[in-house]
Amino acid sequence: MDTFFNLTTQDTHAIWLSIKVACGATLVATPLGFAAAYLLVFSKLPAKSLIEGLINLPLVLPPVVVGYLLLLLFGQSGFFGSLLQSADIRIIFTLSGAVLASVVVGFPLMVRAIRIGMEGIDHNCLMAARTLGAGWWDTLMTITLPLSGRAILAGMTLMFARSLGEFGATIILAGNIPGVTQTIPLAIYEYTNTPGGDRMALNLCLVSIILSFAILMLSEAVARSMKRS
């Protein structure tokens, strides 16, 4: 049993990368997710259902398809790819690529979670704030944002968990490069393709379970303390 929890350097790299990608994706997606949810809940845009459809698309598309579309867009000849290249930024086969893939795939889940919370906010409270002298930005920061707090936390948890598990889009956009873009699921995938790699795969599975569980517990604890205050 002493070899059971022996993680290789490649494994620890994969674990660190997974955490980095999940944190990065959550940080990038949270303000965007809040903005998107706000737009869907409060704005009167005529193209609202179209935007909603676009945001939700990655939820129903196979992640591989999402990854491939991202590769087309951000590849060297892609629209964004060539644009970013002129600024000397490369997305594909880098950590940023892994973060981008996670953001896009997890985004619908995050928006959905924030939106549900935001829809529960009493519009009259926002109107009351306006008549009490709070401008749009003030109202956003002092009423809308705090009242969406728990929903944002739920969205962040979903985003983080989804990023930890992201596989399909990541492998296409960022590749499976040990130490660069190989996250836990990609490492597990590699082990299962290696003869005798079962035990190593199981080790990483265990790490994966522990990580996810820890995140859920943390999120619950934060949510409880938010409810209390």
């Binding site: 009259n124 009351a128 008549t131 003030d138």
Partner: peptide, 20 residues
């Protein structure tokens, strides 16, 4: 003039206090 600058107070039918 936007509502926040009109200085017209409103008391709604339901109090609509800020719950947080």
């Amino acid at each position: 003039i936007p509502p926040e600058q009109r200085r017209i107070g409103v008391v709604f039918q339901h109090a609509h206090l800020f719950p947080h």
